[in-house]
């Protein structure tokens, strides 16, 4: 798949960026309405990976899993591990007001913390970590809007 154009990057502030991606075809092979959740989920992760790589993040793992669950994307940036959770929603119009990223709730955050501790224990190279969230709004078969939250949450206990 080739992204033909990043239509616009709107840096909201340091911690959040908004991008609109467009493409001839995301390669789904059928209309959006006929796609299953799994297929759409994979597309979201695909788009997020492309975007994160374009932002200079080195991708280490896709769908890394252990007994606690799965991490969509694990990358490395500025000498720090980045765990990315990707959330996708199909929307009818661009201005349709949904925020897929809101689905990353407290429970999911607590699971991500356990996953992080697990991943950290399996490697010794890096010991600092950051949690990012990428929300994908899929408008059509060839257009999507991405919102990237850098350091979306921390874990207090």
């Amino acid at each position: 798949m080739a992204i033909t154009g990043v239509v616009g990057i709107a840096p909201m502030d340091n911690d959040m960026q908004e991008v609109v991606l467009s493409c001839e075809d995301f390669g789904l092979g059928k209309p959006l309405a006929e796609c299953g959740n799994k297929q759409l989920g994979r597309l979201g992760e695909e788009l997020a990976s492309l975007y994160l790589e374009s932002m200079g993040m080195e991708l280490l793992e896709r769908n890394w899993s252990c007994s606690f669950g799965e991490v969509d994307i694990i990358g490395e940036q500025d000498g720090r591990l980045v765990m990315v959770e990707v959330k996708l929603r199909v929307v009818a119009r661009e201005d349709f007001d949904v925020a897929p990223e809101l689905a990353v709730d407290y429970r999911k955050q607590s699971r991500y913390r356990k996953l992080a501790l697990m991943y950290l224990s399996r490697q010794t190279r890096l010991d600092s970590i950051r949690f990012d969230v990428v929300g994908v709004k899929l408008m059509s078969e060839h257009e999507a809007q991405l919102r990237h939250y850098v350091g979306a949450y921390e874990w207090d206990d």
């Binding site: 992080a116 501790l117 970590i129 950051r130 921390e154 874990w155 207090d156």
Partner: peptide, 21 residues
């Protein structure tokens, strides 16, 4: 420390102290 970012408060804090973070 490096590790999972966040603040942990110990030392018998009540709710108001825990919210300090």
């Amino acid at each position: 420390s490096q590790h999972v970012p966040g603040i942990t408060i110990v030392g018998m804090p009540d709710a108001a102290v825990s919210e300090a973070r």
